[in-house]
Write a protein that binds this DNA or RNA. Sequence first.
DNA 1: CGCAAATTTGAACGTAGTCAACAAGTGTGG
DNA 2: CCACACTTGTTGACTACGTTCAAATTTGCG
Lengths: 245, 245
Amino acid sequence: MPSSCFAEVLGEHVELTTAERHALAVLEERKRDIRRGAILQRENDPGRELYILRKGLMMSYVLLDDGSRQILRFLFPGDLIGVSSMIYNEAPESLAALSDCTISSFDKPALSQLFVAHPRLAALILVFNQIERVVLTDRLAALGRTSAKARVAALILDLRNRLPTPGKQPSDTFPLGLTQEEIGDATGLTAVHVNRMLRQLEEGKLIAREAGRVTVHDSRALARAANYVNRYEGLELGWLPPARD
Amino acid sequence: MPSSCFAEVLGEHVELTTAERHALAVLEERKRDIRRGAILQRENDPGRELYILRKGLMMSYVLLDDGSRQILRFLFPGDLIGVSSMIYNEAPESLAALSDCTISSFDKPALSQLFVAHPRLAALILVFNQIERVVLTDRLAALGRTSAKARVAALILDLRNRLPTPGKQPSDTFPLGLTQEEIGDATGLTAVHVNRMLRQLEEGKLIAREAGRVTVHDSRALARAANYVNRYEGLELGWLPPARD
DNA sequence: CGCAAATTTGAACGTAGTCAACAAGTGTGG
DNA sequence: CCACACTTGTTGACTACGTTCAAATTTGCG
């Protein structure tokens, strides 16, 4: 029984040793619930702590000075968050809960010690940073070079693949969990236009919607429309350093 | 005399030990020149090697299936490149030289060994990954939520701050080194519209242009127009693990 | 010097934004 | 349990920012 969500995610890619599991468990000793809408970290505040999301859905975002918001990333259970804020005096982004969530928090020295004691885990953290980076560049390309429809399609596919399900396999029907305004802030669109795009996808029989739940009908066509690549697949980790223990 | 560009960059933030300098020098033992326009790595090819850019200007980009291009990042001397490609079987992005360049290359095990032998350097690599990530999120917010003019302004400011100068201090006059098409592919605009925005910035006395060189006249106004933050400043690295040696 | 690439400009078009009004949910307190 | 307030979703009409297409001009380079 894994006591750490983060360990569970890492464990999907490598066989963790007991010592490694123990080191990761330390990061999730403390546990805390936060309510939907709560702001865990505010842009420009000092980022004193790191977090691991254990349950629920969160987002990171920035506010521009005309008041508009850009959602940078949706955060799922097992995600390590706040790393970018820890390296600055002032956090470059805000963190907020989109549903009721459970999180663990730990301080910077804990990460530091992990780097000294477990080089393989350090390398794995690098790997997950890079996955996150590539997902961001996919979104950059989407915002820079694809249509509104494609961006909304990509967001739906990404949610489908990442939202936790009872059985681990992504389910084609899932609760959206986002307002159309939030979808707009993630895709660089207005809520009004998101509504039109969802309708178009529905009319094209790519998706169906009812009671806040979305069903992906034609995930092939959707992926084609969206240029979507699942960046959590196709990893090559043969080069990782040996595990301690 | 620093034998490593990468060490020089890291050395601006921490005092490196002799052992650390030596470990970094190993990464840049081999040295190679590539011509302007050369493609160092192609999307979907295996990313066998890592690189450190020693001299010149490069870019990373992706091609979408409608043929359009999104430039993800400009690369400057001292940048460690190809990390995201090393974790996948197939590289998620291409790397190309925008000017004649000098690079060093090393293999994945070399990085792996660095993580084992020098946890502080591993943590510093994490730090630079995070800076890169934040720069990407700034650009994401720019593409999603700011005007064409603001995006071009931000690109000019970023080039001003990062282009190497004889004296280390950024110079307000510098060679652009990019075609308007490349600026467009970086900012999510067409070359035609980039031209109009450059003209507007010029008419507004924010910049001047002649013979391929740009002069920033009013960097305050430019930064305001662009929401620009220099992400290489304001770091907080007190938590780094102790240096080896 | 001559050619190809890059820049510049104008005109027409289209995607997405803005504004406004209404409908449908959702939650809260009386 | 219902009434009311507020948020969210939906639709239409109009607007505007940036694209597209085309052609002329300049620049850089072999």
